[in-house]
């Protein structure tokens, strides 16, 4: 169980449904640990700003998380969280371990476009 304020993905079926129904998706797959908590915190703050992106988390130790753990894009990853960015269901970027707000917004801006501040 992840004690975050993000929307949780709890099954592979739910994961597939989310990817098929949303254009821009970010999924953080981790635990309640030191490298993951800061990333959840940043995503929680960005949710209000990047309204065109759907933010989710998924518990790393949930057996259903194989959908992320087995992705070819995470081969070589040896640090959680695994953070995956999807455009129309296709992976456009994947990162391993802790990331800063600047690193995350740089990816969001590049892959999904900067938020409309108007």
């Amino acid at each position: 169980m992840l004690y975050t304020n993000l929307k949780h993905i709890e099954s592979a079926a739910q994961y597939n449904k989310i990817l098929s129904e949303n254009e821009n998706v970010m999924v953080i797959c981790g635990r309640m640990g030191p490298m993951c908590i800061p990333v959840y915190g940043i995503a929680e703050e960005l949710e209000g700003e990047y309204k065109h992106v759907q933010f989710f988390d998924m518990e790393f130790d949930n057996p259903e998380s194989y959908v992320i753990r087995n992705l070819p894009e995470v081969r070589g990853f040896m640090g959680i969280p695994f953070t995956i960015y999807y455009k129309n269901g296709v992976i456009v970027k994947a990162t391993s371990s802790i990331q800063s707000r600047d690193m995350i917004t740089a990816i969001l801006d590049k892959e999904f476009g900067a938020p409309n501040k108007g």
């Binding site: 640990g33 490298m35 040896m78 640090g79 391993s96 802790i98």
Partner: peptide, 13 residues
């Protein structure tokens, strides 16, 4: 190589 073999957290990784 951070997150690809280099870590700063034993309980995490």
């Amino acid at each position: 190589l951070k997150g690809r073999g280099i870590s700063y957290c034993a309980t995490c990784d």
